[in-house]
Every structure is written in C-alpha cells, then in structure tokens.
Nucleic acid binder design. Sequence first.
RNA 1: GCCCGAAUGGUGGAAUAGGUAGACACGAGGGACUUAAAAUCCCUCGGCCCGAAAGGGCUGUGCCGGUUCGAUCCCGGCUUCGGGUACCA
Length: 918
Amino acid sequence: MEYNFKDLEAKWQAEWQKQQTYKVDVDSSKPKFYVLDMFPYPSGAGLHVGHPLGYIASDIYSRYKRLCGYNVLHPMGYDAFGLPAEQYAIQTGQHPADTTEQNIARYRSQMDKIGFSYDWSREVRTCEPGYYKWTQWAFLQMFGHFYNNLTDKAESIDSLVAHFAAHGTEGVDAACTEPLVFTAEEWNSWDEKKREEVLQNYRLAFRADTMVNWCAELGTVLANDEVKDGLSVRGGFPVVQRKMKQWLLRVTAYAPRLLEGLDKLEWSESLKEIQRNWIGKSTGAQVFFDIEGSEKKLEIFTTRPDTIYGVTFMVIAPEHEWVKELTCSDAQADVEAYLEATKKRSERERIAETKRVSGVFTGSYAINPFSGKRIPIYVSDYVLAGYGTGAIMAVPAHDSRDYAFARHFGLDIIPVVEGGNIEVESYDAKEGKLINSDILNGLDVKEAIVKMWDEIEARGLGKRKVNYRLRDAIFSRQRYWGEPFPVYYKDDVARPLSADQLPLELPPVSEFTPTSQGEPPLARVESWHTAEGYPYETSTMPGFAGSSAYYLRYMDPHNSEALVSTEANTYWRNVDLYVGGIEHATGHLIYSRFWNKFLFDLGVICEDEPFRKLVNQGMIQGRSNFVYRIVGTNKFVSLGLKEQYETQEIHVDVNIVKNDVLDLDAFRAWRPEFRDAEFVLENGKYVCGWAIEKMSKSMFNVVNPDYIVENYGADTLRMYEMFLGPLEQSKPWDTNGIDGVHKFLRKFWSRFFDKEDNFCVSEEAPTPAELKILHKTIKKVREDIENFSFNTSIPAFMICLNELGVCNKRAILEPLCVLLSPFTPHITEELWHLLGHEDSICTASYPEFNADYLVENSFEYPVSFNGKMRFKKELPLGISNAEIEAAVLADPAAQKWTEGKAPRKVIIVPGKIINIVL
RNA sequence: GCCCGAAUGGUGGAAUAGGUAGACACGAGGGACUUAAAAUCCCUCGGCCCGAAAGGGCUGUGCCGGUUCGAUCCCGGCUUCGGGUACCA
C-alpha cells in the first residue's frame, strides 16, 4: 500500500478532534507537565514555515511527556489586540474585530493541518471580554496596592492610608516615584484630591506626568522596549521625548526580585544576561554637594566614590528641576538657548550625535565635601534626567564622557588613580592605586570605594545606594484596539470601577484615527462614561497587558469567578517549558514575571516565577532565488553564464525553483511579462542564483506551510523543520533537503507491507542484533528529546532503519512506532491501528531503554602512535591493561610502526583508545 | 565602546569528562532495474600526493601560539560574522 499521507492525515485529524484526544483535566493521580508556546498575534499574512518551528518542537515534547505518563497541559490561543489590526482598519475601514476574527480562522486552519496536540477547549483570545475582564481586574489590583520594601511584597493601599492617618510617612519604606515626608496631621488635613495625588506616588498602577516616547505617526506613546534606535519597532517611525500624563506600572518596585529570580530559572545564559542588563543594577553612593550661596544640596549618584578628589565640575541634565534656580542672571540667556536647542532634538538625533560635546555653564558653583574645592556646575544633555538623580559629579580623569567634556570646555583634569595616559584619554578601569586623594592615598580602587561608602555615611553626606536602569512601564496607549481601563474620572481624580462592574467592554467605533484635538478614538464615543456621566479613560492598555498572565488563564479558561481557581492553580502551578522567540526578552518576559510576582504577593497564585524552563527557537530566514535577464531583452541566462552578458538580477518565486533549477514552464506562467521568455541554459538546465534574506513577500521567498503539507504531508514538514538544524539557531529555510525525510517516512511505511502491498508484520522473536539496534535508538532519541536536540534524533531513526534492513518484526516495529510518534503523529497513528490497537497511540507508553541489550564483549580499538590513528584491533573487554598492551604490541601491524623498538609509554583507556608513544 | 555567542566539505549540519573528524541528509558524478519516466537500489565525493588497481602517505575543524601521549573540544592572543546594549555616572 502506498503511503498516502493526504488521506491519512485528514482522517486522523478529524478523528482526534472527534475523540477529543488531547483534552486534559486536572488529574491528581498523574504528575502534571505544562508546555506552553508564545501565543501568536494573528497577522493578516498568515503563517510561513518559520512560525511553526517552535510549535512543532513543543508539540514533540508534549507528546513525549504524555507518553512518559505525565498529564500534559498544552494549550494555544491568540494575542489578538494590537497595532497592526488597527492600522489596517484605518486604511481599509474594516473593524479590527472582524479582521482579527478572519486572521484567527486562517491561523487555526493552518495550525490544524500540522497536527498539533493542543487542547483547543482551553483557547483564549486577549480581545474577548471574558478574557480581558481579568486583565482589567489585575490592573485594579495594582491600582489598589503598593510595594512595601520592609516586607518585600505588595500590600493593600488601604493599609498605607491607615498608616498615613496615624503616623504620616514615619516608618514607611515603600516603592515610590519620589520620596515624600509628611506628618499624620498634614495627611488628615488634606482633601480627597490631594490625598489621591499623594497615593499616586505609591500605587503599583498609577498616573503621572512623565517623559514618554511619543510617536507622532502612530499617534501614541510607546514603552522603552517598543523603541529601538529612536524609531518605533512597529513601523519604524521617529520617536521623540515628551512630557505627558500617562498610566504607568511600578515595575521598578520588583527590580531586585526580577534580578534575583533569574538565578533559579532554567533559561539560556544569554537570555538571562539580556534581562540582567536591562534591569541594570549598579551599586554606588548617593552624595550631597553643597551649593555656594544656597541652602540647597545637589544630590548625585556615583559608582566611583573613590574618585571624589578628582571631581572638577558637576553636570545636571537639561530637564533637572533646579536648572532655573542654579542659573545665574548673566548665564540665563545661554542656558535658555541651550535648553531650547536640546528640546528640539529628536531621540534619533541625540543617538546619532553622541560624539558631539555640548553644554553650558550655569554660573553656579558647588563645594566638594571632601576637598572643599569650589567646582562649576554645568548643564549638558549627556546627563540623563531619568537615571540616578539627573546630576553627576564629573571626574574627567577617569570617565571618558567627562574627559571629552573637560577637554572641550578647558576644565581641569586631576588624576586620582595611577595608570593610563591622562594626556591622551581618561583611565576608566577600576584598578590601580589612589593618588592625590588625601585619606585614600595608597589604597586600591576596590578598597577605596568601600572606605568612601563608610566615610560618606559617617560624615552624613549621603549613603550607599543601589540604582536600576529599569524604568516603570508606561501602560496607556492612545489607541482604540486594546483593553479599556476600568477607571473613570471625577473631579479629575481617577477612580476605579468595582470588580463586579468588570469587564468594561470596548465600545464599537467607526473611525480609528485620533480626534481633531489629538485625543484617542474612544473620545469620539458619546456614551463613553459611567451611568452618572463621569467620563471613562479614553486610552487603552498596551499589547503586553493581555499577554502578561495568559498562561494562568489557560489553567482555568472558563472561570467567571476568578482569574484561575486555587484548585487549578495548585495543580498546574506554572509553566514547565516555555518555547518562543528571544525578541520578547526585554518586553513580555519581564512584564510577565512582574505580573506573576505581583499576583503571587496577593496570594492569588502559588508560584513566584511563571516560566521554569525556557527555550528560544531560532528564526527561520528565507532563501531567495534569482534569474538573470539580459538587459533590454526578455532573455534569461543561467547562473554560470551570466558573466558573459550584461544582466539584471530579478527575484523569482522560490516555489517554482527546485534545487536551484528553474521550472521553465512555471516561470512562463508565473507572470504575463515572462510568457514569451527565452532562456540560455547550461547543461540543459536553467540554474538560479540564491541569497539568504528575510522571509518576505517582496523577495518571493515565502514558503507557506500549507504548500509543504499539500505536497509532502504534515509529518514530513514536522520532521524536516526539526532536521533543519539546532532548534535555537537561526537558519535559512531550504526546501531542497525535504526529500530526505520524506523518503525516510516512505521507507518506514514500506517496512509494514509485503511485496503484494498487504499489511504484514512478522511475529517472530527479534535477534540480539536487532534488539541492540532498537535500544541504541531508544537511548539516543530519549536523550535527544530531553536535551531538545531534535535535529540529531532524526538521523538516529534513519540509521536505525538502515541497520535493521528489511526486518518487519512486530517486536521491533511497534516500539519504533511509539518512539517516532511525537515527531510524526499521523503516520504512526495509522500504523499503530494497523498493528491492531484500538486506542490512540497517545495512550501507549514511551519505550524504556534497556542497557542489557547493549552489552558488548569486545571492542575494536583504534590504535594510535603518538596520537595518530594507525590501525584497528578488536580485543575482548574486561581484560587487564597489561594484556591489552601485550596483545597490541604482538600484532604485526603494530610492529610495522614500532620497528622492533620498545615504546616509551602506552596509554590505554579501556573501551576507548590505545595510544602508543614512541 | 561594553557584554554575550558563533566559525567544521559544494550545502545544512554530526562528533565534547580531551580519544577513529566530516555521522545523517541534500547536492554532484557514475551504475543497476525500466521501452521510457517516476519510484527503488548500489558505488564514489575535504585537499594534495604515490599507485594500473588493491591500497598507501601527507595534510586538514577561521588565524597565531600554549598545555597534553593525544586538542574541533582546554588556556592565551588575534580575525571575521551574528545578537544584546549604550552618553546608565
């Protein structure tokens, strides 16, 4: 019988759906295992072959774990709110809900054809009210909580209010936007509006005037991870800094825990490193500098307090709140001109001009608290308002930026650490002996830093401090297609809806552009207010809102009483294996961890990290093909001959090229202008050129999984995607090699049929040699799956089949079927039933490796002389090294190399190698 | 600039407690079967050299050096490519 993958795959996909083969429920009799894919954003372009790579890997692992006796939760859903659907709506007028629905249907049909073992009864969509009810609920919880640094967890804002009423800020250590000090009397004397303003300083979800990334083309603000090189990640539009009132999440409150938590996770080192850098912990000191002729003290942050004797000037950021105060009257015009010029520069220009030194003197002086020296205060945009205190002490001798600034303005450069050549450049390294530094002289840099921490604290000049690069996440977007905020405004004070008013549903609109006043689309909706007429927030939540806790919702997707029931959560706990792209390292994967830790503090869930193990699949690039048209003609010349003509390179659809050879008829049919194309062939073939590029429509190198499924079957697609190379590596898609795995499947299939094409397996007992081959394969495949080396387990199957030859014994083929089933579920399910089983192959158990079959009693030693392999000698195992040595040296082949002389040394590793040193 | 990671045939890639480099597959060439094609099967394929052949020798995992009986693997120094990040004090 022929391997008819088309009928067979359709048949089993229908059957699995009918039998609900992959549905799972809480089952305390079995250990759980949770395998999760990053759910896709359903874009209009559909899936290309790159998208399913991670899904296939996680599906193999899920099926493997299921066969090993685990109760496996393997769900799928859609991250359905987002910018592209809305941009598309602006262009076409189609409602995002409609296009999203269509795209989801397309994604689903493409995924179904690949034979994934998802439990679709648990599907979630972030844009559905039943789902985003819990996104809104979590937001309200954040609004209602603050972060207590003393207990190191989120606590109810009510307890903070009670504390303020009784003691003011005395004894409070909470994460906040800026430190506040007030008494209970003050608090009690304030009205509600003033109190709420103060509370915004502590809430984990809060509103604040803040510098934001404003993208005019998109008409919205963007989070830091949505901006790269001063351009929006989506669309590549310029982004400028602007101060605006926005909703934010106090992610920074969790910075220490987000950092420490990484150590316990089984994530790749590179990914953890990206997160560590993004969180950016630096330990240093806060120091206050007196200002000449003022009561005020200028606060700075430095990681190099040891260099304080080398401070020759101070710099504050243009946005620093004391710029005006510190500016003397005769410097006023210059400073204002500088501020104006700085404001105009876009983020992109700032980045492009990092080498250019600019700044202006304020006319004020600070006093070095250690040396007592008078030092000028400058304003420059190389100091950022958002980091540290927005002011620095400048040590030009030991900081390259300060050095450039000092050189430009002719300021003093005093070396305080030995080393480097101060005439040419600053010496930034943290090693060497201190000089010119009074009490620090002679100390090592590291010792000096520690001593200064003590000195600064002892003299009351400041204290040790830890700073993080991580910023609070801007949480509002001036868009339509996102979750509405469950808040309304009364007297300009944001007030939360109560939990029973959720979800606050997104109302329909007909226009998706900002209003003429530049307000978000929701401002157009006349009914967008509470029953009492108080207006709702018109911004919506950003993309990461809906994706931050979706993995929890899968545990209990239909629960209308809670995000997730305690029962479901304590059983499924957290994700054991998360598979997805590395591009989410500083976005989703940070926010999700934050969100999870917050819910953990609330006691809603039982694990404080969401994703125990994480695997990043690589990107699949496209492989483009080219044809070469002789300029001015409709004649095309093959690759090897193109140098003889003046040609023009044209992208050609990779689907009409096979092994870089063009299908001429298909090419003529491809586009009308090529209908009469002529060709200059080499060896009767037209050979195309190729290049590795991004997979995109305009390069004609998009390979659609449907096409592969149609022509080779889903099992071949699954296996080939894994065979392509290591999962975590980026690699180009190349359909050329696909015949190899397809051939393997046909060959495997044919083992079950005799010459007359009847299903036929032998009941004969397997030989020791056959068992050895089988168990060698079991061992290899099990190890590979556990290590995610799917690419190396496929050769193991191929070798197994080659070594077995024509063996058609049930005792060998049946376990092989199970072994193979995670990779190629359809063909193995069919064979499993032909073998006489009634239940799905999913109910089988994965074959155990039995070491007894692999016991060897002799070994063919490679014998090398001075490390160079010369011949092989088969010797029994278990004999002594002396016996091995004697046997080898007696061999005529060895005597040829020793030439009768006794070797200097013989190294024997039993079962591995014999090396003779002459 | 700083921090990670990588480099192996015509191609994708195997191989690490340091022990036969190039598994497996693609591709190419040759052959068998066939009226023919498809399908299937067999042989050869890193480079250089000796040999009619069988076979044999040298060399070879980006470059230079080190440790070792032995290095694709460990150490030091480079080169190139990829990723992250950047006036973060």
